[in-house]
């Protein structure tokens, strides 16, 4: 009996007049996503906007381009330049090496366990950054690192005498590649899995060589996901600080370290120049993403 009355009530509620239902429904409709949007606005969008606006204000709060102009001082331009170089080099090396590894494990006819082991390891290594990673490379390629010492004693090759330095552009790039390759593998393997075996067979029966098939089908199909991942790797390296900081202290002048120092101690003696540096970082990663979106819409009319 209770059950019956309950379900009757539920039905009565359901068939309430439409006007009443609508006035009740609209706010509840949005209620479910409100916490998310409050969170996003307060802790992602507003703080970022705050810096972006601050980049165009002087100490008195007046609009100015002076901070942006000040970005073009030699010291800051150099920092941006080396950051861009390291990010670009590590993302490109990481992307191509990661692609090679992904193709090897998916299409190379290697045993199955290698594929799953590589994917698990990639999940780990792509999240292995910061201090532990920096230290791993110090232990490997530092002045007293295992590889440095072994090369010196076994082959007589003194890396450091040949101008190698872990605390340099190449040192940082090699270290960053450690998390860039696995990130590429994790993202691109599903895309390679998406290449159907029948495409290759159809191309073969139509007389195409393996190279022609790759040029006309595989590369165009993989290209958008590949490029998207390169952009992601670039942003990943561009914002990274812990690894570089642990590795080089402040001896390598990259943008995040410069900004870090500025936040800690206002080394530039101009708070709004700090905003401008942050603005510049978002500008560059944003630009990379806009380029990607533009490219995607242009080249991918065949995608739904």
């Amino acid at each position: 009996m209770t059950d019956l009355s309950l379900s009757n009530k539920a039905i009565a509620g359901k068939t309430a007049p439409p006007a009443e239902a609508r006035s009740l429904r609209l706010p509840t409709q949005w209620l479910g996503v409100t916490p998310f949007f409050i969170f996003a606005v307060m802790f992602l969008i507003l703080p970022t906007l705050y810096l972006m606006l601050g980049a165009f204000q002087n100490e008195a709060g007046e609009f100015t381009f002076a901070n942006i102009v000040a970005l073009f001082s030699a010291n800051i331009v150099a920092a941006y330049w080396i950051s861009i170089k390291v990010s670009l080099a590590s993302s490109l090396i990481g992307a191509f090496a990661g692609l090679a590894v992904a193709i090897a494990i998916v299409r190379g006819g290697l045993p199955d366990w290698i594929r799953s082991a590589t994917l698990t390891f990639s999940g780990v290594a792509s999240n292995f950054a910061g201090v532990p990673l920096a230290f791993a490379f110090i232990a490997t390629l530092g002045r007293l690192g295992l590889v440095t010492v072994l090369l010196n004693t076994l082959v007589g090759l003194n890396l450091y005498a040949h101008g190698f330095n872990l605390l340099s552009f190449w040192g940082l790039t090699i270290t960053y590649v450690y998390f860039q390759i696995p990130l590429m593998v994790v993202i691109i393997v599903p895309a390679i899995d998406g290449l159907k075996r029948e495409w290759g067979e159809a191309a073969a029966t139509l007389g195409a060589t393996q190279a022609q098939y790759w040029r006309m089908v595989v590369i165009p199909v993989l290209w958008p996901s590949f490029l998207g991942t390169v952009i992601l790797l670039f942003a990943n390296a561009f914002g990274a600080i812990a690894t570089a900081y642990a590795l080089t202290g402040s001896s390598l002048n990259i943008v995040p370290i410069l900004l870090y120092a500025q936040i800690r101690g206002d080394v530039l003696h101009n708070a709004h120049l700090g905003y401008a540096i942050a603005f510049g970082m978002i500008f560059i990663t944003g630009l990379a993403n806009i380029f990607y979106i533009w490219f995607r819409t242009r080249s991918e009319r065949w995608l739904k």
């Binding site: 159809a202 191309a203 029966t205 006309m216 089908v217 199909v221 065949w302």
Partner: peptide, 18 residues
């Protein structure tokens, strides 16, 4: 296969999507 000059049609169409 690419030297045999055969035409083949597959169950899953296998058209090149790009």
């Amino acid at each position: 296969p690419n030297q045999r000059n055969v035409g083949m049609v597959f169950q899953a169409y296998a058209l090149f999507p790009n």
